[in-house]
Each structure stands twice: as structure tokens, then as C-alpha cells.
Simulated assay, not measured.
Amino acid sequence: MIKRHIIFAASFVTTIIIGYSDYLSGVHVSMMLLYAVPVLLSAWYCGKVEGIFVAVGATVSWFLVNANNNPSGESEAVMSWNAFTRFGIFVLIAYTVSLQAQLRRALERERLRSETDRLTGLLNKGAFRDRVEEEMDRARRYKHSLSLAFIDLDNFKRVNDTQGHARGDRLLQQVSETILHAIRRTDIAGRIGGDEFAVCFAETGEEEARKAINHLLKTLQIMTSQSGWQVTASIGVVTCRELCDTYDALLGKADKQMYLAKEKGKNTAEFVAI
């Protein structure tokens, strides 16, 4: 909201500055294009109404400049008509640009909705796969390491059975929030099943992955103990040193490591490097 106000105020002030420059340059130099710039910016970033307000300011600024700098002696009727046509052009710019901005934002919202798991806000299974495969291609190209973690909640079914699905959903939301807070902004997190999550650690070797997963486990333990959830997490991690396998094969290896972690008592992580 503050950003919109700043852009709107800056656009309005800009029309005054352009008007003063227009006055200094004289009637023989057209500033039409410059007047249109703040109208365009305010309409794109602020909206149609703000764009029209700036269009009014640009028109008034132009009219005052030409009224005080009118060597050809144009009549008031001619000047009024010219001002009206310029106002119409500015309003058309504001209206068209604002519609384009609305359409772009709507398309972006739809894209995010199609990629996002509605319950947790993480990437859904398909979007996670796409993002990880892009990262795997990058790892192959530049010969970077990459680590993939498969996370499964221990005793989650007991929560659903004893406390209800609404409480289970709340647990999944809290786990997702904890994962996002524990990983880097460059890492990729997704929900790939009911109580199954996955995290792709870009450009991350085995030692770095161990540190990241240990931090994640501790963060999850703190969250569950403070919130009273009787659950833990078992995590399987696979690290590609240079050449990554396919996504399905990589996820399968991480899944196997996760089951090893469960067999060893849960609430732990198992690692493998390939």
C-alpha cells in the first residue's frame, strides 16, 4: 500500500516537473510523450483511478503551460479542445494500461494457484517435480551438487484418528511453515503426499545437506514440542555429486533412505551420496 502511494505521489509530482520543463522549452518542443510516462506508471502500478487522476494533472499542467506561453494567440476554444483531446489520450492510456496490469496479475494468481498446494501453501506435487527437474538440469550443466530430502511425519495417522482431520490439517500447515522457515530462500519445498514433503537443496553437497537437515529436524522438534504435537519426522536424503539421475529415481532413493530412518527408530535422517 505504501509503495502504491509513493508511486502515485511521485507520478503526480513528475507531471509538475514536466510541465515546468515544457514551459521553459517553449511551444515549439512537444512534451506529449513525457506527460504520458507518469500516467502510464501510475496506471500500471496503482490502478485505473490513480492513472486517471494523474491524467488530469498532466492535462492541467499542459493547459497552464500553453495558456502562459501562447505566442500564436490561439483562442480559448482551440486550447480547450486541444486540452480535451490530450486528456482523452491520457485517460485511454491509463485505462488500457490498468487493464493490462489487472490481466497480468490475474494470470499470475492463476499460475500460483495451479502450482500451490491449497492446504499448506507449498508447491504441489507436479510443480515441485517441474522445479526440481529444472534444478537438476542446471546441476548437470554446471556440474553442481544437488541434494533431495524426502520427509515423512511419524505417527501422523494417530493425530487424524484421535483428534480429527481438521487438527491434522493444522499440523500439516505448521509443519509446512516450519520447513519454509528452516530452509534457504533458494531451496525448493513441496508437499508430495498426505503427510509427505520434499525439499531440494540447490548446489548443496553431502556435508552441507547434513547440516541443513539437522537444523530442519531440530526446528521441527522445537515446533512440535511447543505446540504439543506427538509427532516426529523421518527424513531420507540423497546427494548427487555431479551427474543427477532422473527425478523419479532420485526421489525413490530418498524414499528408501527415509524408510531406513523409520526402521532405526524414527525422528532421524539417513543420507546417501551418488
Rank of each mutant, 00 (worst) to 15 (best):
C46R: 08
F84W: 01
M79F: 07
G57H: 00
L107I: 09
S75A: 03
P71E: 04
S80D: 01
I52H: 07
G73P: 02
A94S: 11
I52V: 15
N82I: 11
G47K: 06
G51P: 04
V54Q: 01
W62N: 09
R86H: 05
P38T: 09
L92M: 13
A94L: 04
G88K: 10
A77Q: 08
V56R: 10
N66D: 14
L103P: 02
P38C: 00
P71D: 12
E50M: 04
A94H: 11
A106D: 15
N70G: 13
V78I: 15
A55H: 08
P38W: 05
I89P: 06
N70D: 13
L103D: 05
N82W: 01
L107M: 10
V91A: 03
R105K: 14
F63G: 01
I89D: 15
T85N: 01
R105S: 15
V39C: 12
L103H: 12
Q100P: 00
E76P: 00
V39R: 00
V56Y: 04
L64E: 03
A101P: 05
G88Y: 06
G57P: 09
V56W: 10
V60F: 12
P71S: 04
L99S: 09
V49P: 01
V54S: 09
T85G: 03
I93M: 13
T96L: 10
R104P: 00
A77L: 13
V78T: 07
S61G: 04
G47A: 06
T85C: 02
V60I: 14
S80G: 11
G88F: 13
V60E: 07
A101F: 04
N69S: 15
R104D: 11
N82M: 11
G88V: 10
V97T: 05
V54D: 02
W44I: 09
T96I: 10
Q100F: 13
S98H: 05
L92R: 01
S61K: 06
S61H: 12
L92Q: 04
W44L: 05
L40Y: 12
G88P: 00
I93Q: 05
I52N: 02
V56T: 12
N82G: 09
V56A: 15
L99A: 14
W44G: 03
A101R: 00
T85E: 08
A43V: 07
W81K: 03
A77H: 03
F63A: 14
T96C: 07
Q102S: 07
F84L: 11
L40W: 14
E108Q: 15
A77T: 10
W81M: 15
Y45M: 06
N68S: 14
S72I: 08
F84G: 12
V78G: 01
G47M: 05
E76N: 06
V56H: 08
R104S: 12
S42P: 03
L64W: 03
A106E: 13
V65T: 15
V56C: 11
G88Q: 08
A55L: 08
R105C: 04
P38K: 01
V49D: 00
L107N: 15
A83K: 10
E76G: 11
P71F: 13
Q100M: 14
W62V: 05
